[in-house]
Nucleic acid binder design. Structure first.
Lengths: 384, 384
DNA sequence: CGAATAATGATGTGGCTCATCGAAAATTTG
DNA sequence: CAAATTTTCGATGAGCCACATCATTATTCG
């Protein structure tokens, strides 16, 4: 059974410190009186707590700007710069590193191209280089990073590896967490890219209002990420959402309808094929429209399975093809109406190619939060 | 954002009261010293808290039995009789009512047969009668019930109705919660039967160790209930797990392989058909074995979709057919190996026909817990 | 009777609230 | 233009509540 820990008197201070930090975060700088009202604590009580938080480095004083009657109050704000997190997207074509503060503001980003058939060592070297670049651009040392999350393709198991499946050659035996733990002493999390994209859409994307979300990756790969009751669901073995593995769900072959659309110009770059097909379809080209129709039909079978299984509030359509979501959403909706009991809203992603790295940031921030709110509040001076 | 409520000093007492109650529940009667050790509180502190709990009626004193050196300690136990909950299974063929105390011990049960084609008024009357019977057998008044959960067939929407689908004639417009609220002033929850059975299997059944569970109802109806991260998942519209609605998943027709197995004796009662088929299959009858094979194949398609979507730790096979689970589990496992990335454990239900009502009890108890642990601890005297 | 353990009481401390008073800046007023 | 007034912030002290620690008394068994 859960350990029933009794509470000392000092626990109260901890609790109230946390609730003041919570009331401060993500808000504009607040006065003591405002915080007291927001938390329900007394003014003097709030005062001593916030004084301690300032000396501990969690909170900063903002000198009064003076634009009111009466004596101007000191304002306080959460010291988002007390710590930082990294979100890393290890893709087939690019490495993207985002550096953010504790409020989740992105301070620096670095993108670096890689090749899909690069060997693991090359890819890891690119990751290292991108991280180094991002840190030095922000003038930051590795020990100022409080959490790192790495997004990779394929289901991630408990050890942070993608042993079940990955399209990157040789990557199955790689442990990004082990690799990075040489540089960082903070928690290093590894997560599937679709799952991270789903998290990002709930954080800053198209589904901020929803707690039950299915994210569909619609692009040269097809995949899904699930958020239920506001929390990312990984599954017991980390393979939740891998409905595409079902043969009856033709997610593996679905993109080929578009990538091999009849009429594609010879010698067109693979990355431009989809754009070309969507362009033609928009113009009314029969072949392109047929390709789209077949693609959506295949996509919808898996989507319907997810929707029926989970009954989400929103389906977010992301991935490369979602740039032309206007062409996809209506037919997808029609297919789902044909297949499902209750059809959720379908929305297009608004985050684009950064979504995986953004989701990685959010997961890293959640990790920091979890440590904070479980272990109480230590002084950040020990880390700075 | 979440309201950041500051804590008064009296919050401490509340917190410690709760942690002592938690340490007391489900355990044999404990002495003050034991509780102090278990909660980390001091002995005198524990003493005053438990004294208050006794006068409030939450805890009872057990007089010392005297079997130790030194002065024998008073022992205390959680007063499970302070409140009670009802779990009601409204099935096609039966109404089952369970009455339990706050520890979840079943004190009384009452079963009452109904017909599948009874009209809603008749069925509700049977529910009322069964509840009355159960209460009076236990010598209990409705105001001593703290929560009621009703299990029904079909997805339950936010208003507690089964508007999307139900096999019971006329039941779609019935609101069991509204009906019962005339007799009970406590919370009345309505939930889908498969979901409740899943809860029961985690509580007292085959999956007590698992946090990610797919429950498969395998019987004359086919359905599923999902538990992820230890919590029942309902879906945004309450329709989670309804994968059977997908036409490609032939769950609706799957039981007919068995119910219409060639060679069934003319005039056999519908309820006995399955038993007959399983019996023949066990004896090696070709037709029966073929029927079973086809049934499992159909069942497995939906099961595979669920498993791939959720990646659970355990699949629990319940429902009427699970009495012959030994004939089903191996072929099902083979099918899943063919269809899935990672195959979870497959276990047979051990609860049988009571599982829905048991799950209803657990959900009602969870409701009581949620109220307790959020609103703090009022004296039960106001309720008794 | 002594050993062992339980219950009880006394004292001290940390943290919170409430009430009050002083301080600083803007507005009003002579 | 300067003094008075208003308004709000900041600081301090009294009181309360819940807990911890330590000492004392009570009860049983060997």
């Amino acid at each position: 059974m859960a350990e029933a820990a009794g509470a000392d008197v000092s626990k109260l201070r901890e609790l109230n410190s946390l609730s003041i930090v919570r009331a401060l975060r993500g808000q504009p700088p607040a006065t003591v009186t405002e915080l007291a009202a927001r938390t329900g604590l007394s003014r003097p009580g709030t005062d001593v707590v916030i004084r301690q938080l300032v000396t501990d480095g969690w909170v900063q004083v903002v000198e009064p700007d003076g634009s009111s009657v009466g004596r101007p109050a000191r304002r306080y704000r959460f010291n988002a710069g007390a710590g930082h997190v990294l979100g890393v997207d290890v893709g087939g074509h690019k490495i993207l590193v985002l550096l953010a503060d504790l409020e989740g503001r992105v301070l620096h980003s670095h993108r670096r191209p890689v090749e899909p058939d690069d060997d693991p060592a090359t890819r890891l070297a690119a990751v290292d280089a991108a991280i180094t670049e991002c840190l030095s651009a922000a003038g930051m040392r590795p020990d100022q990073i409080w959490a790192v999350t790495v997004g990779v393709t394929g289901p991630v198991d408990a050890t942070g590896r993608t042993t079940l499946f990955t399209p990157l050659p040789g990557w199955a035996s790689v442990s990004p967490a082990d690799h990075l733990s040489a540089r960082f002493s903070c928690p290093i999390l590894v997560e599937n890219d679709c799952k991270l994209a789903a998290v990002a859409e709930r954080w800053k994307g198209a589904a901020q209002d929803a707690d039950d979300i299915v994210y569909l990756l619609a692009g040269m790969r097809t995949g899904a990420g699930l958020i239920l009751d506001g929390t990312l669901r990984r599954g017991y073995g980390g393979a939740a959402g891998e409905i595409g593995a079902l043969k009856a769900v033709r997610w593996l072959s679905a993109p080929s309808h578009i990538e091999n659309c009849p009429g594609l110009p010879a010698g067109i770059h693979p990355n431009d094929k989809a754009a070309w097909v969507f362009e033609r379809a928009r113009e009314g080209d029969r072949d392109a429209r047929a390709a789209l129709r077949r693609y959506v039909k295949d996509l919808a079978v898996g989507a319907a399975a997810l929707v029926l299984t989970l009954d989400p509030q929103v389906v977010v359509l992301g991935g490369g093809y979602s740039r032309s979501a206007d062409l996809l959403i209506d037919p997808l909706k029609r297919e789902l109406h044909r297949l499902c009991l209750r059809v959720p809203e379908i929305r297009a992603s608004i985050l684009g190619a950064d979504s995986v790295a953004l989701g990685a940031l959010r997961v890293a921030l959640d990790q920091v939060d979890a440590e904070l709110f479980s272990d109480g509040m230590p002084a950040p001076l020990t880390k700075a």
